[in-house]
Nucleic acid binder design. Structure first.
Lengths: 209, 209
DNA sequence: TAGATTGTTAATCGATTAACAATC
DNA sequence: TAGATTGTTAATCGATTAACAATC
């Protein structure tokens, strides 16, 4: 819970635990042991314990963990217990799909505005979110102090969009484009690596033959 | 190029190099050194060399690598130089967005059919791909011997869809759902971990304060 | 109490980085 | 030739796994 650096793999596994725990909770379960989680999720039990430990929870020998406490701890740790506003830039196929993805609510993300260049889209509502012209981006983001910008434009346009977001005082960028973004060190950039995932699939498929 | 196991991080970096090299090529560049790539992509030069080495290419001291040869080598290594057919199951927001994502063509992926439960969607064409009823999945996939299935349904429906794909003889599953899929060991599963990516963003954003 | 489970400390493993030799 | 660049071998770093002590 403190200053100790959390390994990135641990961070990336936390949503898996969270998802699994929420499912158990829906099924009416109350408690769970790290050993059982280990089996169900195919993660070493020692690893599960270390991962959960970063959130500050403590289990009870012979009993395990209360599910509601675990869920709460992970949500708080990731800051997923409150909604953080975000804007999306690029109202194409992908942008529109993300706007319609209600599950982000469970991950603390609330997309409040969208921006695009295409005049046909401007003024429209996509999944209850209004699309504005990209010229309005800086003013809107500044005024509302939006901390997160989601980039779903082409690689060619991505750096320009990033510059606008930085000008508007954005704190973090979730980058779905293929472009390696150049931003000041104070701005957090998280790349979604769809290609990397597909590369693993393609390579392993090739290896089968 | 042989049996030596390729580290997963290397595999995941290859598309980054590929993307970067294609851009350079468009700009008319002919050759590139690992040192320059290192600088531009923020990856250690030793790492770049080791990564490229797995594809079997060899550079020339003082000159570097020919860009077209590098591109070709990475594409062949990932089997991205030919189109592999795939079906997508779940023609919702995300499924539809992936159908419209032309860039997959550059990653060797050709989505040839879509499946859904929703009667309104069946028979429709989304981005030139016909949507069929999920009851037709096993027959179609078997008949056409489609190797890749993309799952874009809810977590609750995902395991069922996976079972159908396995029955149909699928070889690899690209899983966009939150469900941990249970399949025979011969079937490759690659999970797209959007949540993990968002977790990193959220946590680092929280840490800023 | 006995034993299942927790949580920590030590050992291993694998990826990254550093050092260096080879070469055009 | 000199020096930029390649590619390999060795050292370091960090994450995972194994071993073990603590406890309800």
């Amino acid at each position: 819970m403190s200053d100790v650096k959390v390994p990135s793999p641990t961070l990336r596994r936390l949503p898996k635990y969270l998802n699994y725990l929420r499912r158990l909770q829906e099924l009416g379960e109350v408690a769970i042991s790290a050993s059982t989680m280990s089996r169900d999720l195919d993660i070493q039990h020692t690893q599960v314990r270390k991962d959960l430990a970063v959130t500050g929870v403590q289990g009870v020998p012979k009993v395990g963990h209360k599910i509601d406490i675990l869920i709460d701890a992970i949500e708080k740790f990731l800051d997923w217990n409150t909604l953080t506003p975000a804007v999306i830039v690029g109202a194409g196929n992908l942008g529109s799909a993300l706007l319609g993805y209600r599950a982000f609510q469970r991950s603390g993300l609330s997309i409040v505005e969208a921006f695009d260049l295409n005049q046909d889209k401007i003024g429209q509502k996509l999944h209850d979110v209004t699309v504005y012209h990209i010229d309005d981006l800086v003013n809107h983001v500044k005024a509302k102090q939006i901390p997160i910008g989601i980039i779903t434009v082409s690689a060619k346009a991505a750096q320009n969009v990033a510059n606008l977001l930085v000008d508007a005082g954005i704190q973090a960028i979730w980058n779905f484009s293929h472009e390696k973004l150049n931003v000041p060190p104070s701005v957090i950039v998280e790349d979604v690596e769809l290609d990397s995932s597909l590369a693993e699939l393609s390579y392993h498929l090739k290896q089968r033959h």
